[in-house]
Design a protein around this nucleic acid. Sequence first.
DNA 1: CTGTGTGCAAACTCTTTGCATAAGT
DNA 2: ACTTATGCAAAGAGTTTGCACACAG
Lengths: 146, 146
Amino acid sequence: MNPQPTSMMPIPTPQIRPLLERYGLRATRQRLGLAKLLFGKGDRHITADVLAAEAHGSRIFASLATVYNVLNLFAEVGLVRSFTVEGKTVFDTNTTEHCHFYFEDTGAIQDVLDGKFAGQFVAPEGYEIAKVNIVVRLQRKQDPRA
Amino acid sequence: MNPQPTSMMPIPTPQIRPLLERYGLRATRQRLGLAKLLFGKGDRHITADVLAAEAHGSRIFASLATVYNVLNLFAEVGLVRSFTVEGKTVFDTNTTEHCHFYFEDTGAIQDVLDGKFAGQFVAPEGYEIAKVNIVVRLQRKQDPRA
DNA sequence: CTGTGTGCAAACTCTTTGCATAAGT
DNA sequence: ACTTATGCAAAGAGTTTGCACACAG
């Protein structure tokens, strides 16, 4: 089940390369590196600039423009999903239909787990639903004695 | 019930002035004019630049910066509601909790009427829901023979 | 009068783009 | 080799801000 490293492969590069190829994408250094960061630690919500910074910290060099290009490309082919919060584009490695909590105090983003939202939207005649974007903005509950 | 125009008031300025005052806002020329445009024709979804253009067309002069200031102010006090689509801030005169259709082909925005979405979100401990933002993006249904 | 709002232009943030260079198959 | 990506810096869109002047109460 667990695919063994083919030969001596010092860096734990998982099945990222075949993943990219499966989506018809050329496996470039930057794409491999960014994909590893994106998919290597479970589900993530990340903006382009944060991913770029993280990449630099991991000695994966990709310009901010390239990070944008790669993320947009990944979003197009369906490897990630994107939505906007606070004027910033957030890329989500969880591509299933789900909602998000946005914590206004910390800026954190979290999947709504139980989120049994009745995504029962009926598209008007001639249209189909391309995407449903749901963000629940949260603020810290203020002290009753104010 | 219908308050009569106080004196000779050629322009049909409805109860906009008291509306602003009720929200603690000074009734300036620009605010009155913009509010008239906003609330004079039923529910609207409008961006700052479009409202500015409309204002100019109606001989109500307000700079784009002022339109932004006024709309943001209106949103703060609860006269309008705002959300973001396609990187642009849309101001909605309907302040009730509701969802929106965004037509990707035309750019139009429409309230989801029946929208019986189960807005049953439970905020995490210590937080309360500040706002729920739901946009259903629609694309024209493509022809089966492609 | 006194404080608040407005206009203008410049600043700002996030994102995209053009073009020469570098890398992938 | 031949094509496609990348990097850089500049352009672009939308929104905000600083400051002098104008207006509302």
